[in-house]
Design a protein around this nucleic acid. Structure first.
Lengths: 217, 217
DNA sequence: AACGCCATTTTTGTATGCAAAAGTAAAATT
DNA sequence: AATTTTACTTTTGCATACAAAAATGGCGTT
């Protein structure tokens, strides 16, 4: 009666590794992914590597050109703007749904994370701050109880992550962000979905502005 | 000086064919995609077939299980509800952006399509009606000038299409839909993005209701 | 008849082979 | 000298080969 543990296939492992390399900037935008080089580097044959290429192409992280190979996609400012427009709408939806569906326990956990984030802020712990921040948004997304929404959001968000690493860990808009998060919490507690939605949309807008304001490397 | 015409690779051809077969219900939800059978049927080797599997898995049309094969995903009512929640937000965003960015020419074309749709409605031409309807929504999406939005929307919409074929060409909510489309046009002309957004969100909601109301096959 | 066990077949995951396309750089032509 | 041609190398697209995992089915046990 043992649950069928699904063995991880080489393809997904390679895809994960490549994704990481792209997001962390180890594979720079525009560069061509040479199959021979990567097979030697990752110690796999061309078959799982090429299958991983298809996966990453689906995520829009790379572009495939017939007979010419795979290239890391570059994020133009226009792309970033478009991504944030969509992410804003999705995050807004997540907030609205979460306000209607979140449980008391989930809300308590978010409240706890919020204070943890403020603590990190107080001691100028940037990584800690980012981790809490991300967690809070992830929890709101989870509380929306819509896996399609979560998956769609994450798929688009990955592309932004590549930027995060480039814009030298963008000095965050500490104070404004904290204030917005305070407001988010009150609206969640008040179950005011509409207002939360609006707030989250502008929250994303501000995020975009601060990201685009910093010199992209 | 000839433009570099990009040869279509077998993988994308196979992926397109399989996508079609799934959406048209030729490959029913839940069935396993046997590689040998499909290679014989499509006259390609396993390599491009398996690469196509990865593409379709990225689109959530199939599910891959290690050492067990590929299965056509089934759309549970819960999935449909979630999809429509997200599609509503995306379509709303498209409307809001379109209201701000649409050109007079684009608006004129949509107006023309609207009358064409009414004509199809008048002569009870269901396929024509659907075609115009789809075109109108596609044009609004295009007018939003956000390729990320368009791509995201289409990716999710494909999954719904599989349903369309099953719910025996769901008798449309002719009259309500037409009325809503009339309102859409006026709001577009008035450049009232906020209102258009709200309208489109409820428009999608109604679509979902009529789709879920019909006995799924 | 229901269940478990083992041999056989089928199917998948991965590596490799081969041909065509693309890239490269030296020789030939203008 | 600049450009084209051509021989050669590299790289990709696809097919196939091989091994491990999973499915199948007969057999015996209960």
């Amino acid at each position: 009666m043992n649950a069928p543990i699904d063995r991880q296939t080489l393809t997904v492992g390679v895809a994960a590794r490549l994704r990481e390399m792209i997001v962390e900037g180890q594979l720079q935008p525009g560069v061509r992914l040479n199959e021979r080089v990567l097979t030697e580097q990752l110690l796999v044959s061309r078959t799982p590597l090429r299958e991983a290429f298809k996966v990453l192409a689906g995520e829009q992280l790379i572009e495939l050109q017939a007979d010419r190979g795979a290239f890391v996609k570059s994020l133009e400012p226009a792309d970033v703007a478009q991504l944030f427009e969509v992410l804003g709408a999705l995050e807004g939806l997540a907030g609205e749904l979460a306000a209607a569906r979140i449980t008391a326990a989930e809300l308590a956990e978010i409240r706890a994370l919020h204070f943890e984030m403020k603590a990190a802020h107080a001691r100028r712990d940037l990584p800690g701050y980012f981790r809490c921040n991300m967690q809070i948004h992830a929890r709101i997304n989870a509380a929306a109880r819509n896996t399609v929404l979560t998956a769609t959001f994450n798929a688009l968000n990955v592309r932004i992550h590549a930027l995060r690493f480039k814009s030298n860990a963008a000095k965050p808009r500490w104070d404004e962000a904290i204030a917005e998060h305070e407001a988010m919490l009150s609206l969640l507690e008040a179950r005011d979905g509409k207002a939360l939605r609006t707030l989250l949309e502008s929250h994303l807008d501000h995020k975009r502005e601060s990201l685009l304001a910093t010199p992209i490397k």
